[in-house]
């Protein structure tokens, strides 16, 4: 008949402690994991909170502005990138805003009370409009509001 070791409590206790620690570590890693998922057309990167203007980056991707404008509105909408109006509230979306020299964001639209903003090389973020400077130069795009289909 099988006999337990002399100090089974110590052995069991130690094994359980080690196991629990390993599982908690694995669970923590899993809970905080930001898996990258390869879809049939694109790679879905995990969202995070480092969007422009402190926004939540909901769809990180490294697209260029030209490609994004083409994909969303067609190639014909590529404008000369110079501001003509001011402020993010200066017109209906979509529009480009230029908060700093060499920095361009595409305001895709609104969602709830937030702005949906594409930043070249970064991706799409939702941004509290109060976080966007009110007097940034902006340029409305002469395109209809984007639709799913």
């Amino acid at each position: 008949m099988w006999r337990p070791p002399r100090a089974p409590s110590v052995l069991l206790g130690g094994a359980l402690l080690v196991w629990t620690a390993l599982r908690v570590r694995a669970a923590d890693a899993e809970l905080n994991a930001r898996p990258v998922v390869d879809g049939p057309f694109r790679r879905w990167l995990p969202p995070h909170d480092d969007g422009p203007f402190g926004g939540h980056l909901i769809d990180p991707r490294s697209n260029t502005l030209a490609n994004e404008l083409t994909a969303r509105y067609g190639a014909s909408v590529l404008p000369p990138l110079s501001p003509t109006t001011r402020g993010p509230g200066a017109g209906d979306p979509p529009r480009l805003i230029f908060p700093a020299p060499g920095e361009t964001h595409l305001v895709v639209g609104t969602w709830g009370g937030d702005l949906v903003v594409f930043t070249p090389g970064l991706g799409v973020a939702v941004v509290d409009p109060d976080r966007v400077p009110a007097d940034v130069p902006a340029r409305p795009l002469d395109v209809p509001r984007e639709r799913v289909f």
Binding site: G39, W44, P47, I58, V124, V126, R147, V148
Partner: peptide, 22 residues
């Protein structure tokens, strides 16, 4: 697709199109 694809799709038509296209 990850759930985040659907979360993005709620806010962004382009992401929604990606889900539909899939």
């Amino acid at each position: 697709l990850p759930n985040t694809a659907y979360d993005a799709a709620r806010a962004d038509p382009a992401a929604s199109r990606d889900v539909v296209r899939t």
